[in-house]
């Protein structure tokens, strides 16, 4: 619900616009635009975010603390989000790096289709993403029935939550890395190979340092979306209180149970996680820009 601020598509780094020349527009245009922007950002972002905190603390700090930590279901929701999101992000990091490397370095038939498929989760509605897994692993399917006979549950249980989250957030890492890998080119990697490095050595010592910040940026965006995911999770969770409710689901449930202070208390935690993510994102963006402008930055990194 609240992590939505971070859901914009990842900015591709090489397209950063040149800084605009100051004073080339008349003053009234500048001030009108600045005013309009401030108004929109204030009205759409700052005021709603501030109201989350105002509502959360409306019954005092004691009640806020109580709402967050003295309710077993809420505690479990926080725990579950802190488990499900990192696992989904870790899976996507591995798959994302592999997919981006494949697409950026190799030319093979179906490469364009693969590139498009990676983007698919962005365009598919999260509800559909959830239903896909229900239709795949539900009791009415052979796979679901087989799993059930062997005492294993994927949907309506944490594994399903991870799968749905990973599906929805899949494009973030790969999308972020493809342009970085393409911009860097394969020259350094080929040099490493020609000097006798194994594939594994080349990957860890040349490729990874070169894409480090882009990778981190993708992971951060992926994580922000993973923690805030609602639609797909709603479908696959079965909404079992204290068992498959993640933080966004719990926020909705508390709100619907007329427990607004508790709903907003939990929402404020999600918001704070989003703000932390935002700060890290800004830092990483700076580093990334530095790396992009100095192609050999990896070799000069002093902090190793």
């Amino acid at each position: 619900m609240t992590a939505n601020v971070l859901e914009e598509a990842p900015a591709t780094v090489e397209h950063l616009p040149p800084p605009p020349k100051p004073r080339s527009d008349p003053w009234y245009v500048r001030y009108a635009l600045i005013g309009l922007t401030l108004l929109i950002v204030g009205g759409l972002v700052v005021v709603p975010l501030a109201s989350v905190f105002v509502q959360a603390f409306s019954k005092g700090v004691g009640a806020y603390w109580d709402n967050l930590f003295n309710n077993a279901d809420t505690r479990h929701a926080v725990f579950l989000t802190l488990i499900v999101a990192p696992v989904a992000v870790a899976l996507n990091t591995v798959f994302g790096v592999a997919a981006a490397y494949t697409i950026a370095r190799f030319r093979f038939p179906g490469r364009t289709i693969l590139t498009t498929l990676i983007d698919l989760p962005f365009s598919v509605s999260p509800v559909v993403a959830g239903l896909v897994f229900v239709l795949l692993f539900g009791l009415q399917t052979p796979i679901g029935a087989w799993l059930k006979d062997h005492g294993y549950q994927i949907i309506f249980a944490p594994p399903g939550l991870v799968l749905a989250t990973a599906f929805v957030t899949f494009p973030f890492v790969a999308r972020e890395l493809i342009p970085v890998l393409e911009a860097n080119g394969a020259d350094e990697e080929m040099a490493a190979r020609s000097l006798g490095a194994t594939g594994w050595q080349m990957f860890w010592r040349v490729t990874v340092p070169n894409i480090k910040w882009g990778l981190l940026y993708g992971i951060i965006l992926c994580n922000a979306r993973a923690m805030g995911e609602f639609g797909a999770i709603y479908v696959v969770s079965g909404r079992i209180g204290g068992q498959t409710d993640t933080m966004p689901l719990r926020v909705e449930k508390l709100f619907q149970e007329y427990n607004q202070p508790a709903a907003f208390a939990l929402a404020s935690v999600l918001t704070m996680l989003a703000l932390v993510t935002l700060v890290i994102k800004v830092v990483v963006e700076r580093k990334m820009r530095a790396q992009m402008t100095r192609p050999n930055a990896a070799a000069e990194e002093p902090t190793k």
């Binding site: 005492g151 294993y152 079965g238």
Partner: peptide, 24 residues
């Protein structure tokens, strides 16, 4: 360690737990 631990927890969480009643 944290991510691996979380991963193992998720995988194990798929095994049915029987002690509780669920009212849908």
């Amino acid at each position: 360690v944290y991510v691996l631990g979380a991963f193992v927890w998720v995988v194990l969480a798929g095994f049915a737990r029987n002690e509780q009643l669920l009212n849908v």
